[in-house]
Amino acid sequence: MKTLILTNRIPFPPNSGYPIVVYNTMKGLLKLGVEITLFSINPNKYKVDVEDIYDPLFEQIKFHSFNLDTEVNVYGALLNIFSNQSYNVSRYFDEDAAKLLGDILKENEFDIIQFEGLFVVPYLDVVKENSKAKVIYRAHNIEFDVWERIALTEKFTPRRSYLQFLARRLKVYETEQINRFHQVFAISEQDRQSILRFGCETALEVFPVALDFEKYVTDPSKTSFPTLFHLGAMDWRPNKEGLEWFLDEIWPDIEKLNSELRFYIAGKNMQKQFFEYDSENLVVEGEVFDAVEFINSKAIMIVPLLSGSGMRVKIIEGMAMRKCIIATSMAAEGIRCENGKDILIADTADEFYRAILQCITNPKKWREIGENARKTVERDHDVRIIAERMLNIYQKLLTV
């Protein structure tokens, strides 16, 4: 079976949510004998030098990429207001990229073409004009929902109004496109329900984040305690806003609990403001070379998200590493977990305080939650099981 996967960034190295999801999808399918061609937009924001990719999986696929400047600019945003297009999405379309994709489609015959996320959907017309393959849309999240929630937290009225405008445009685009595919994959049951509510009439299945558990090996002897940690890309607005809230409203009281307690924050594109917080017990590390090693070295994971959609890959990774995770309901959305058993849910400053106090005064409790967390992700997120399910869907589509 020949499959073409379209992505809005190069998923090498798999060091954050979107690349991890795409990378593990390819890894699982390759092991089942699927031939994969990858076509990636290579935006300036996440630009990857293809010559620097050293990964065994990369050698197993056929690869094409197109460099594209997708940065927001005032002139482009202003012009877009007078169009009927979503500015969030239209920035990812380029005529030369479309021509390159069209040439690939003319030279190759594919059985399945999978669109990973909304930002490559503008290339759907090119695909339909040049291929008879079955087309699949994988919703990594509900994009307009993300922007609606971000707008709700914005206090500056003009900016909030513009964010609401972007969300409305995104919603129109997302709902119009969803039924142009032969199959839709949602990343969580909550997202599946949302997609149904806005009018999805095509086949719809849930395919959560998949992990290869051979990568997630814990070594308790290297875990320092008492430690809290947060790991996430700081150029993603929900991560930045959630961490700001935690540091401003919760951390000042938490650090008084124990003079030895340390809170480590890590992630790429760490904003300058986080290095300037006045706290001796806060350690800002920026981007870490090995996320798994970093997670292993710390005890309790803090995920204070106040907005967002989809499924938090870093929570899944933390659970795989047997970590006790204290997260908001929003952050845990989409994960089949149970408060007090394999995760701790905290939505207010007081709930975070009590959950953290419980963990640092009763180490047995957080270790127990961590062990249960590992069992949960092994049940729901095994890359082999998920890849087999995905291949079964492919095969059914080809018989229709």
Rank of each mutant, 00 (worst) to 15 (best):
M1K: 06
K2G: 05
L6Q: 05
P11Q: 05
P11H: 01
F12P: 00
S16D: 14
G17F: 00
P19S: 07
Y23W: 08
T25H: 13
M26G: 02
G28D: 04
E35Q: 14
I36T: 06
I36C: 04
F39C: 07
N42E: 04
K47Y: 09
E51S: 14
D52I: 01
Y54E: 13
D55A: 06
F58A: 00
F58Y: 09
Q60F: 12
Q60E: 15
K62T: 12
H64T: 11
N67E: 12
D69C: 05
V72I: 15
V74R: 14
Y75S: 11
Y75N: 13
L78M: 12
I81M: 11
Q85I: 05
V89G: 05
S90H: 11
F93R: 06
E95H: 03
L101F: 03
G102V: 07
D103G: 10
K106H: 13
N108H: 06
F110V: 03
D111T: 08
I113Y: 02
I113D: 12
V121Y: 05
P122C: 10
Y123V: 06
L124R: 03
E143Q: 11
E143W: 10
R149V: 09
I150V: 15
L152G: 12
K155L: 07
P158T: 07
P158L: 03
S161G: 15
S161R: 15
L163G: 00
R168F: 08
L170K: 01
V172I: 14
Q177V: 14
Q177F: 13
I187G: 02
I187R: 01
S188A: 11
E201L: 15
P208K: 13
V209S: 03
V209C: 09
A210P: 09
F213T: 08
Y216R: 09
V217L: 13
P220E: 09
S221G: 08
T223I: 12
S224M: 13
F229G: 00
M234D: 00
D235H: 06
D235M: 01
W236E: 07
R237F: 15
P238F: 07
E244I: 11
W245E: 02
I250Q: 01
W251R: 01
D253G: 06
I254D: 00
K256W: 09
N258A: 07
S259C: 10
S259I: 07
E260H: 15
L261S: 00
K268P: 03
N269H: 15
K272G: 10
F275W: 14
S279K: 06
V283C: 13
V283R: 10
V283S: 10
V284K: 00
V284N: 01
V288W: 02
F289P: 05
F289M: 15
S297N: 13
A299D: 08
P304E: 11
S307M: 12
S309T: 14
M311H: 10
M311R: 06
I316T: 06
K323Y: 09
I326R: 01
A331G: 05
A332Y: 04
G334I: 07
E338S: 14
N339M: 11
D342C: 10
I345E: 09
A346D: 02
T348E: 10
I356G: 01
I360E: 03
W366K: 07
W366S: 04
R367F: 12
E368S: 14
V377P: 02
R379V: 09
D380A: 10
V383C: 08
I386S: 01
I386K: 00
A387N: 04
I393E: 06
L397F: 13
L398E: 08
